[in-house]
Write a protein that binds this DNA or RNA. Structure first.
Length: 376
RNA sequence: UCCUCAGUAGCUCAGUUGGUUAGAGCAUCUGGCUGUUAACCAGAGGGUCCUAAGUUCGAGUCUUAGCUGAGGAG
């Protein structure tokens, strides 16, 4: 897969680029909607392609392995065909589940032993089989198995953790290099930087993963509870080290402000559950600030959901109607809010690209950051 | 007319032999959510315990009368 940097911002590390995959071209910076279990929750594939023009979405190895399971995905001919999505897919390795489901797993030198959250059954994930599974899913981008350290994590524990992540990376890379794509199309493998909030460990980890030739590099283990200023500091340390000619993927981040700040630090790819999860829970992101659609104040506000919104739902429905849907527990509320939020996130990325190209990124970002933080 | 049962938060109801500041679910309002175990989670507001009198150190709880509702008898 080929990544080309197109424009570099003069005043920051922000850049635009284009990432060519077997399932289409992706303009960066890009936001990847999260579709953990072969669906971006509450969003139809047709909306994803036609209304949102999403070029790449995320799947999750742990969740897909448990359900529907590899036998079904293999019979289906891979995830693209199974879910009728012909554009790119990146699969998370399950490294985050090592963290978020820590109560039901055990780490060994071999890998991570999991109890399924669905039926309690035991499963072993190793750096090798997690590559095999992602090959079988047919992901365009395969993520290495890593350990996402919790916050806080002292230096000693974080040092031990990156040691494990680096060992797993070596094994995962070897498996990736020694195997072929399952369905004929090219697949890439992204290593992941860890090291918690410790600058020296992050630096060491970034230098370590750079040793492996890859189509892109990821920054993991952030936005797990640390102050945002520290997150930016760590992102900067890492992006200053990672090769400029490869895309940098900041995993799991974040708020609209997080995205703009990280873009200026040289990040190219993002994913986050926020637009979809918060949308399902009644929260809307707009260029003028955030709204809680459950609030009583919207009950007789018949203005459009978002006057400046870019998707049809923003102009087809009123705030009063959307509030009614949430208060009533109607499923359409979650659909409209998810569509709106993803539409906003993708607009924010395309606008950032435009501003970088035109050389106005810093000024535009300063204005946006103020607006985005407002509560409407 | 008589008998029985019931009356506690906006709604549906708990509330032990009388014993701290009367609770729950739902509803309402307000937060939170960052590589999804989440259409989820948390917090708050909300009370003339039908009314009045009595017994008691102390009554949502016991006694009497009344009011309202449901059912039954004639």
């Amino acid at each position: 897969m080929k990544f080309t940097v197109l424009h570099k911002d003069k005043n920051s590390s922000a850049r635009t680029g284009i990432f060519a995959t077997a399932h289409g071209e992706i303009k960066t910076p890009v936001f990847m909607p999260v579709g953990t279990g072969a669906t971006v929750k509450a969003i139809h594939q047709r909306e994803l392609a036609e209304d949102l023009d999403a070029r790449i979405i995320l799947g999750n190895t742990y969740h897909l392995y448990l359900r529907p399971g590899m036998e079904i995905l293999e019979k289906a001919g891979g995830l693209h065909r199974f879910m009728n999505w012909s554009r790119a897919i990146l699969t998370d390795s399950g490294g985050y589940q090592v963290f978020s489901l820590s109560a039901m797993r055990k780490l060994t030198s071999e890998g991570a032993l999991f109890s399924s959250h669905i039926d309690g059954s035991k499963h072993m994930f190793t750096p090798e089989n997690i590559v095999d599974i992602q090959r079988c899913i047919g992901a365009d981008i395969i993520m290495a198995l890593d350990e996402c350290a919790p916050f806080p994590c002292d230096h000693r524990a974080a040092a031990k953790s990156i040691e494990l992540t680096h060992q797993w990376l070596a094994r995962g890379f070897e498996r990736f290099s020694g195997t072929k794509p399952a369905y004929g199309h090219e697949q890439s493998f992204f290593p992941i930087v860890q090291g918690s909030v410790h600058p020296d460990l992050r630096e060491a980890s970034a230098k370590e993963i750079w040793k492996y030739p890859a189509d892109g590099y990821a920054i993991g283990g952030l936005s797990v509870g640390e102050p945002e200023a520290i997150m930016y500091e760590i992102v900067k340390i890492v992006t200053d080290i990672l090769p400029v000619e490869k895309p940098r993927y900041l995993m799991g981040v974040g708020t609209p402000v997080n995205l703009l700040e990280s873009i200026s630090l040289g990040v190219d790819m993002f994913d986050c559950v926020m637009p979809t999860r918060n949308g399902r829970n009644g929260m809307l992101f707009t260029r003028h600030g955030i709204l809680n659609m459950r609030n009583n104040k919207w009950k007789d506000d018949f203005s459009p959901v978002d006057t400046d919104g870019t998707c049809f739902a923003d102009h087809s429905y009123s705030k009063a109607y959307l509030r009614h849907l949430f208060i009533s527990g109607e499923i359409l509320g979650a659909q409209i809010a998810s569509l709106h939020n993803l539409s906003f996130y993708l607009w924010l990325m395309s606008e950032a690209r435009k501003q970088i190209e035109e050389g106005n990124f810093a000024e535009w970002k300063a204005v946006m950051v103020k607006q985005l933080a407002r509560r409407l």
